[in-house]
Amino acid sequence: MLSHILKRLGHTVLVIIGISIISFVFLQLSGDPVGLMLPQDATSQQIEELRHKLGLDDPVIFQYLRFAGNALQGDLGRSLFSNEPVAGLILERLPATVELAFFSMAFALVIALPIGIVSALKRGTIIDTASMILALFGLSMPHFWLGIMMIMLFSVQLGWLPTSGRGSFLHIIMPAAAMGISMVALFARLTRSTMLEVLGQDYVRTARAKGLPGYLVIGKHALKNAMIPVITMIGMEFGLLLGGAVIIETVFAWPGVGRLIVQAIMDRDYPVVQGAVMLLAMVFVMVNLLVDLAYGWLDPNVSLQGESK
C-alpha cells in the first residue's frame, strides 16, 4: 500500500509541473499586460522600461524558471495592480472556495446516493420514475436562478438564512445547495446505473444464497462495488466545483477564488491568474490523489496491480 501511495504522489508531482508549464505558456500567449498598466500615451521607451522591470523581456524559459523557483519558495509574485503578494491574495480566499466545493459535494451526495440506490432497487416502479424526474429537474435549473429564488424565499420571505457572505454554517447552506443540486441528478443516475449493474452480478446472488439479510446484501456486497465509479466521478466533479463557482460566488457574495480569477483575467493581472490556476490545480490534483487512494481501498485489485508493476 505504501509503494502505491508513493507512486501516486510521484504522479501528482509530475502533473503539477505540467500544469505550471501549460498555464505559464498560455498566459504568455494571451497578450502583454504592460499595455493595460500604462496610460495610452506612454512612449515606447516607457513600455520597454516597464517590461524590463517586470522581467518580461527575458526569454520565456528564464521567466518560467524564475516563476517556478520562486513558487517553490512559496512566492507566486505580486499582483501587477494592487502589488500585494499573489500567494497571500489567493490563500486568503482558497479556504472559502474549498469549503463551498466540499459542502456542495456533500449536499449532492447525501441526496443523490439514497435516491440512486432506492431507484435501482425499485426499478421500473413509480418511485424510480419519480425520483429520476425530480433529479433531472434539479439538473435543468440554472444555479444562478436557483440561488436567487432561494434568497427570495429563505432570506427575504422567511428570514431563516442570511442572504450573502461567509461566516456561520447558516451562510453556506444556500450556496452549497444551489451548486449541489445540479450534481444530484448526475450522481443519482450514476449510482442507479452502477447499482443496477452490480445487483445483477453473481456475487450478489451468492450473498443472498448465503442467507445474508437485505441490508448486508445491498449495503455491503452491492454498495462497495457500486461506489467505485461514483468515487471516480466525485474526483472529477470536484474540479468543476473549484473552478466553476464564479457565478454562485457572485450571487451569494461568497469570498472565493472564482471571483478573484475573473477580475484578474479582466485586468490581465497574470501573476494572480497564474497563481490561482496553479493553486486550484493543486487542490484538484490532491483531491484526485485522495480519490485514487480511496479507489485502492474500495477495489483491492487496483492497488495490487499498482504494487506488482
Binding site: 456475487y203 446472488r205 451468492t206 448465503k210 442467507g211 477495489d299
Partner: peptide, 30 residues
C-alpha cells in the same frame, strides 16, 4: 434456511465471489 440448511455453489467461482472482500470475510459472514 439459505446457506444454513440448504446452500448453493455456482458455475463461475470467480464471479460468484465478491471481488472487493477477502475470502476469509466472505466465509466468516456465514
Amino acid at each position: 434456511i439459505r446457506g444454513n440448511e440448504i446452500s448453493m455453489i455456482f458455475q463461475e467461482p470467480l464471479t460468484a465471489l465478491n471481488p472487493v472482500f477477502t475470502v476469509g470475510d466472505q466465509v466468516a459472514e456465514v
